[in-house]
Simulated assay, not measured.
Amino acid sequence: MSDTRKVTIKAFRFNAETDYLPYYKQYEMEVGKDELILDLLNRIKWEHDGSFSYRRSCRHGICGACAIKVNGRATLACKQNAMELLDLFDNELVFEPSSKKRAVKDMIIDKKDFWDKHAAVQPYVVADIDPHPEHETKQSIEEFNKFLDSDLCIQCGACHYSCPALEANPDYLGPAALNAAYRFTVDTRDNAGKERLELTAEPGVGVWDCVKCFECAEACPKEINPIEKITKLHNMQFEQGVAKSNVATRHAEGFVRSIKKHGFLDEADIVVYSEGYLGMYKHLKTAMKMMKAGKIHWNDGLPWVDNVPKSKNLDEIQKLIEISQTNKL
């Protein structure tokens, strides 16, 4: 098997100062088995077009500067082997910036929205510290382990610009900022946890606007799972009395209520519980489709009708919920 492969690369080109519209330019080269995507970016610049622009710095997967998209997939260029992607995409690679609508020059984007949202959650320890402390601030292993992998974030923005919720709602903080909010809220040295939780509880901004698509976890080059931290922020809002009654929080309560009652999910009851009978009418088209598929019945939403089957292990399920539930809804 050959150690090299002839490759066609289509690179997104755009200069905000001179171009009205972006375009794609094609390059052909022989790619070796050990070359990274960053090597190919370098070769485009060094061998084909010196005006080609991108960010790079550490080359060790630490700084996050070289994040781009390759064939629509979030990629840290200094970490990703080119041959692995060529096996997936049949010898043709498309290089694009992490966010095309934020492109400044070729692969370089304006990350202002990312940094603004990151700064909004106060991603640092907030505490009154003696300027001349006599001893260090200690943490137990158990307290340190609560960080999970949230401290591994390199602020590359891969998850942020892969998030469909943020694409649809520019006010949403996004997975990277929420990961940082979790990391510093659980830090025992910090005094701004409640303030962060209140921010992450805001409708349209915080954790309740996450659609649980797991795109952020797929995109992360450090294999952090922001969804895990977002879920923990949900729980912390309930535990610390920050969660407010709204459609999102009642939807979460409805899940637990349904499982406790039946051992199964009662979709119709969750809608009624979350949005009330008036709010239920906006879902009529979806309800009709679900009725045709046999998932719900016409009388499922009526309070005096209980036709959802009970799990044969309902007692066990209820005990598990009782043991694991850390807050009262």
Rank of each mutant, 00 (worst) to 15 (best):
M83Q: 05
W304S: 12
P131W: 04
P226S: 01
P133S: 11
D266T: 09
S140T: 13
M280E: 14
H283C: 13
R55P: 03
R196N: 04
G193C: 05
R183G: 11
E134P: 06
N71G: 05
P133I: 12
H283D: 11
D306V: 09
A293D: 12
D266M: 13
K138H: 13
D116I: 11
V125G: 12
E84I: 09
R250P: 03
T188Y: 08
K232C: 12
E28V: 11
F214H: 04
I317P: 03
Q237A: 13
E322G: 09
S2V: 13
T188Q: 12
G276I: 10
D34C: 08
L93Q: 02
L88Q: 07
E47K: 06
W208C: 01
L197Y: 08
R43A: 01
S51A: 07
E92H: 10
M29Q: 04
V247I: 15
A158R: 00
D149N: 08
E143F: 06
V308D: 08
L148E: 10
F238R: 06
F255I: 08
A103W: 02
D187N: 04
S57T: 04
I129V: 15
K289I: 13
H118R: 11
V305A: 13
F89E: 00
L76P: 02
Y277I: 14
V242G: 05
T326Q: 14
F89H: 05
Y27N: 03
K25T: 12
I108V: 10
G279S: 07
F95P: 00
R5W: 13
G157W: 00
A74H: 01
N307W: 05
A11K: 06
L197R: 02
G241P: 01
A82K: 04
E47Q: 06
A67V: 02
E35M: 09
I37T: 01
Y54M: 02
R250E: 11
F214G: 01
I37M: 02
E198Y: 08
H60A: 14
F52P: 00
N327P: 00
N169Y: 03
T4K: 12
T286D: 15
Y23T: 15
M29H: 02
K194W: 14
I317G: 05
T286S: 15
D315C: 06
T185M: 04
T75A: 08
K244N: 12
N81K: 09
D34M: 13
T8Q: 10
N71R: 03
M236G: 02
Y20D: 15
F14T: 09
L36E: 02
N179F: 02
D3Y: 14
C213G: 04
H234V: 08
F255Q: 04
D149C: 07
L265Q: 08
S2H: 12
A268S: 14
M29D: 02
Q155M: 09
I154W: 03
A67K: 01
I230G: 03
K33I: 13
F184G: 05
K319S: 12
N191H: 15
G64E: 00
V272H: 08
R257H: 15
W46H: 04
